[in-house]
Design a protein around this nucleic acid. Structure first.
Length: 700
DNA sequence: ACGGATTAAACA
DNA sequence: TTGTTTAAT
């Protein structure tokens, strides 16, 4: 798992900041009467008092622990205040905590590169700040050291010679201001001062306390941050590393808390990090592979070259729920219901991310846990499935459901599929989650989309359906489409879900079990297309139209068009022709009669190295095929639902460069901006650089 | 088949 | 590269 990286410099200053029982603090800030009292945050109060997910330090004194049940906690600490985690859409809603975490990150990022490691932890690279302080205003010249800083814990401080009669804080003050310290220790001292200041700012501006570790690398900083909690900080001088690690239980090390750590103990008899020192790097590599072996060897010596990534935002968003034991989902209808809830949350968060951070996610993944009785391979795992992510709540729902059904088909096996008919042949879904990943910033220059989004309602821009269009598109809609009535009440179609399959799969289509069981009262209802399906109104149609016109006429940016189109189709499947045509594809069509690709058929060209421009491209390609008179339905369904080779995967080489060159400059730039960041991997880039550096003569 | 819900990252 | 696995909180 872990990967070894050489430690380029052992004079970095790295801090790990960890919020103290964060969820509890967030709730205590909401409910001020809870401050200072034994408190825990629980989710799902119903069964045995719910599960604790955060415990205040007051409660910990009583022996209350995470992973206890609410009832259990009451027993050991009758005074405890149990706060329920917010619930939305039938599941825990962690948004308050995410937002609170963002507040903290914003503050902590002020003094150096900041990596958001989890909802309540960050790493900071304070090297620059520490060096600057050491050069301009070193601690040894300070007459006063902040109270927060002198409360630091300095590992191994006992070993340092100190004058007699000084108390702990005086010792710390002395260590921090020592003029005869090594440069590395001085840098750490500067780091400690900076961190103390930051922690104080966090407290003042958010009312949250946190703990921190300051060391030369992430591993040690992380280790240290947990050593003195809450609301304290710990410094790891270089000289105290070996003593610290020597007796440290191997499982306490990050990355070694699981199976690898267990293997170390059982297979190699390693119980402390120090025990690892006896093994040669080669030996460790033999056991665990080159990467892990080297990583272990380094770890034993406190060496860890991992960089602090400058990342303030998460790389993915997910929404999931478990359905333990008897609550397992046993019908597709029920799965669909819950998927719908999960997708709504996910979509909401994607919208926020888009608006706040101007980022777009490109991949949608569905994961499920399932059991299967009466079957030989009933321990098979439910396969996770992913596909290009199309924005819009109902599209996400459609796609997620398709992914689920694809997974279910695979999970159940392709044979007895027909047998079950309406009845569930012994399967149950015990966990469901949808997530969005490959989140990339919108290239600057395409920011004008935000104009559009700001004029829209946040969540689901839906609009009245035009009757004619609806009939035409109805078969396209998945059963989840437009299922939400205005009350948010779920209704289902009586028809089988129209999962489309291309060619060879058409036969299996009808044989799918996809049980919709009778249990659902709503089921019998024929789902007539609602005249008004919008659960949130789409205001400002006027603004919208005006904008649309402007943009299309001005040959506005490509991405803007793409997203507008996405929304339009969400709004009720307006005509793809004319109005829904994006500027760029219209441009292509007028200029090149729809021959964007070098190859013949956009929708049939089988691509080797799939390159994902995501649906920007697929949309474009689909429109192309549409213009050529192909059925956009087929193209769409083959690519989006069948999941064999999604249409969004097109090789960049298939785009004719000559065609691109003839585009207006503005569009060219935007397309390039989209292509570049996804195509090039780091290694490729670096290799190119090195090659050019060493082979300057060799051109072309 | 329970500590739930998220995230990240490496591996094949 | 997709899907799987491990790990952490």
């Amino acid at each position: 798992m872990p990967v070894a990286k050489p430690e380029l410099s052992d004079s970095r200053v790295i801090a790990h900041v960890d919020m103290d029982c964060f969820y509890v603090q967030v709730e205590q800030r909401k409910q001020r009467s809870l401050r200072g009292k034994p408190t825990a945050v629980v989710q799902y109060n119903s069964w045995q008092g719910g599960g604790l997910i955060a415990v205040s330090y007051e409660a910990r004194k009583f022996g209350v622990k995470r992973s206890m049940r609410g009832d259990e906690a009451k027993q050991v600490c009758p005074e405890i205040h149990l706060v329920q985690v917010p619930v939305a859409r039938g599941k825990a809603d962690l948004n308050d905590y995410r937002n609170a975490g963002s507040e903290v990150v914003t503050i902590l990022a002020r003094r150096g590169r900041c990596e958001r490691a989890s909802i309540d932890e960050v790493y900071l690279d304070l090297t620059i700040a520490a060096e600057a302080m050491l050069a301009d205003n070193p601690p040894e010249r300070l007459e006063t050291i902040s109270e927060e800083a002198v409360k630091s814990h300095i590992l191994g401080l006992e070993e340092f010679p100190v004058e007699v009669g000084s108390d702990a804080r005086e010792k710390v003050r002395h260590w921090l201001t020592r003029s005869d310290a090594s440069r590395r220790d001085k840098l750490l001292a500067c780091g400690a001062l900076v961190v103390a200041e930051l922690r104080l700012q966090v407290l003042e501006e958010t009312e949250f306390t946190c703990s921190a570790g300051i060391a030369h690398n992430k591993m040690l900083a992380k280790l240290a941050s947990g050593m003195n909690k809450p609301a304290q900080q710990t410094v790891v001088p270089f000289s105290s590393v070996s003593k610290l690690l020597g007796t440290l239980p191997i499982k306490k090390m990050k990355q070694l808390g699981g199976k690898l750590g267990t293997s170390l103990q059982i297979d190699l008899g390693v119980n402390t990090v120090g025990d690892l020192l006896q093994f040669s790097e080669e030996k460790l590599q033999d056991y665990y592979g080159v990467n892990t072996g080297s990583w272990l060897w380094n770890t034993a010596r406190g060496i860890n070259g991992e960089e602090v990534k400058g990342r303030l935002l998460p790389n993915s968003h997910g929404s999931g729920k478990t359905f333990p034991g008897p609550r397992a989902l046993k019908t597709v209808a029920n799965v669909e219901k819950w998927l719908s809830e999960l997708c709504e949350e996910l979509s909401e968060r994607l919208q926020s991310d888009l608006e706040q951070n101007k980022r777009i996610a490109h991949t949608l993944t569905l994961h499920a846990h399932a059991y299967k009785s009466n079957d030989a391979d009933s321990f098979k795992k439910f396969p996770s499935k992913s596909c290009p992510l199309r924005y819009g709540t109902s599209k996400i729902k459609e796609d997620a459901l398709s992914l689920f059904q694809a997974g279910l088909r695979e999970y159940l096996g392709l044979y007895n599929v027909k047998t079950s008919g309406n009845q569930n042949s012994g399967w149950g879904i015990t966990g469901l989650s949808v997530s969005a990943s490959k989140i990339l910033a919108i290239p600057s220059g395409t920011r004008s989309i935000m104009n559009y989004f700001h004029s829209q309602e946040d969540t689901c821009p839906q609009v009245k359906l035009s009757g004619e269009k609806l009939i035409q598109d109805a078969p396209l809609l998945s059963p989840s489409e437009n299922c939400l009535g205005s009350g948010g009440h779920l209704t289902l179609r009586s028809t089988e879900p129209r999962i489309a399959h291309c060619e060879e799969d058409t036969e299996t289509k009808d044989s799918l079990p996809l049980d919709r069981q009778e249990e659902d009262k709503e089921m019998g209802k024929e789902k007539l297309p609602d005249k008004e399906t919008s659960i949130c109104s789409s205001p400002d149609a006027e603004v919208y139209r005006g904008w649309e016109k402007d943009q299309t006429e001005s040959c506005g940016d490509y991405l803007t068009e793409k997203i507008r189109d996405t929304l339009e189709s969400e709004e009720g499947k307006k005509s793809n022709k004319e109005k829904g045509m994006s500027t760029i594809s219209r441009y292509f069509q007028s200029q090149h009669s729809g021959s964007l690709l070098k190859g013949e058929h956009a929708s049939t060209s089988k691509l080797r190295e799939p390159f994902s421009l995501s649906d920007c491209q697929s949309e474009l390609l689909q429109r192309n095929s549409l213009a050529r008179g192909e059925s956009s339905v087929d193209a769409h369904l083959c690519s989006q639902i069948k999941l064999k080779r999604p249409a969004w995967s097109y090789d960049i080489d298939e785009i004719d460069q000559d065609v691109l060159n003839e585009l207006p400059q503005q569009i060219q730039e935007e397309v390039q901006a989209w292509l570049r960041p996804q195509k090039r991997s780091n290694t490729v880039k670096r290799d190119l650089g090195i090659t050019r550096y060493f082979l300057p003569a060799k051109d072309k």
